[in-house]
Amino acid sequence: MTPARILPIFPIMLSGTVAAVISLSQPPHYAIPILLAGTTFHSLGILLSTFMYSNYIGRLMSFGLPKPNTIPGMFIIIGPPSFTGLTFIGMANAAIKVFPETFVVGTSGCLRRRF
């Protein structure tokens, strides 16, 4: 079990990051499906990487740290959680600009009125 086993998950997760970036330049009828697909694929990627984390942490607890020349490769497993934060922040910012005003809670005019 090496950290490199998580590398096949990165393309799935990066589709969410790309969706967050390109959805801002699309008209709303194209941007909404892009954001939904990006959220779906990124969530699938983080779910699969979480399953890999359980195997990886179990291996570390059973056999200890790997050989010293392979320890720098352990930083690969930092990628998926950081991509998740970046992607969901980007998609939330894009959703506020792309979705209709009445669709996203907190952006509709009725919530801005003082009661």
Rank of each mutant, 00 (worst) to 15 (best):
residue 1 M to L: 11
residue 4 A to R: 13
residue 6 I to T: 13
residue 7 L to F: 06
residue 8 P to D: 03
residue 8 P to F: 01
residue 8 P to N: 02
residue 9 I to D: 10
residue 9 I to Y: 12
residue 9 I to H: 06
residue 9 I to R: 07
residue 10 F to I: 07
residue 10 F to W: 14
residue 11 P to A: 01
residue 12 I to L: 15
residue 12 I to N: 15
residue 15 S to D: 13
residue 16 G to C: 02
residue 17 T to K: 08
residue 18 V to K: 05
residue 18 V to Q: 10
residue 18 V to P: 09
residue 18 V to H: 12
residue 19 A to R: 01
residue 20 A to W: 00
residue 20 A to T: 01
residue 22 I to R: 07
residue 22 I to T: 07
residue 23 S to T: 04
residue 24 L to N: 11
residue 24 L to Y: 08
residue 24 L to E: 14
residue 25 S to H: 13
residue 26 Q to D: 05
residue 27 P to R: 01
residue 28 P to N: 06
residue 28 P to I: 04
residue 28 P to E: 05
residue 29 H to I: 09
residue 29 H to S: 15
residue 32 I to F: 08
residue 33 P to G: 00
residue 34 I to W: 01
residue 35 L to N: 00
residue 35 L to W: 07
residue 36 L to H: 10
residue 36 L to I: 05
residue 38 G to I: 00
residue 38 G to V: 00
residue 39 T to S: 14
residue 40 T to V: 03
residue 40 T to A: 15
residue 41 F to M: 04
residue 41 F to R: 04
residue 44 L to T: 06
residue 44 L to A: 09
residue 44 L to R: 12
residue 46 I to H: 06
residue 46 I to A: 12
residue 47 L to D: 10
residue 47 L to F: 15
residue 48 L to I: 10
residue 49 S to R: 00
residue 49 S to D: 02
residue 51 F to N: 08
residue 52 M to D: 13
residue 53 Y to C: 13
residue 54 S to C: 10
residue 55 N to D: 15
residue 55 N to L: 13
residue 57 I to R: 05
residue 57 I to M: 10
residue 60 L to F: 01
residue 60 L to I: 01
residue 63 F to C: 07
residue 63 F to G: 09
residue 64 G to P: 02
residue 64 G to T: 02
residue 66 P to T: 04
residue 67 K to A: 11
residue 67 K to Q: 11
residue 67 K to P: 10
residue 68 P to V: 06
residue 70 T to M: 06
residue 70 T to L: 15
residue 71 I to R: 10
residue 72 P to D: 03
residue 72 P to Q: 02
residue 74 M to G: 09
residue 74 M to C: 07
residue 75 F to H: 12
residue 76 I to A: 09
residue 76 I to V: 04
residue 77 I to D: 05
residue 78 I to L: 14
residue 79 G to H: 08
residue 79 G to M: 07
residue 80 P to L: 00
residue 80 P to N: 02
residue 80 P to G: 01
residue 81 P to R: 07
residue 82 S to D: 08
residue 82 S to M: 13
residue 83 F to G: 09
residue 83 F to C: 08
residue 84 T to G: 05
residue 85 G to A: 08
residue 85 G to P: 00
residue 85 G to R: 04
residue 85 G to T: 04
residue 91 M to S: 05
residue 92 A to Y: 09
residue 92 A to S: 11
residue 98 V to P: 08
residue 99 F to L: 10
residue 99 F to G: 01
residue 100 P to M: 03
residue 101 E to Q: 12
residue 101 E to H: 14
residue 102 T to K: 12
residue 103 F to T: 11
residue 103 F to C: 15
residue 103 F to L: 15
residue 104 V to P: 02
residue 104 V to T: 08
residue 105 V to F: 06
residue 106 G to A: 02
residue 108 S to C: 06
residue 109 G to Q: 14
residue 109 G to P: 15
residue 109 G to D: 14
residue 111 L to S: 12
residue 112 R to C: 06
residue 113 R to W: 09
residue 113 R to P: 11
residue 114 R to D: 13
residue 115 F to K: 09
residue 115 F to I: 14
residue 115 F to R: 14
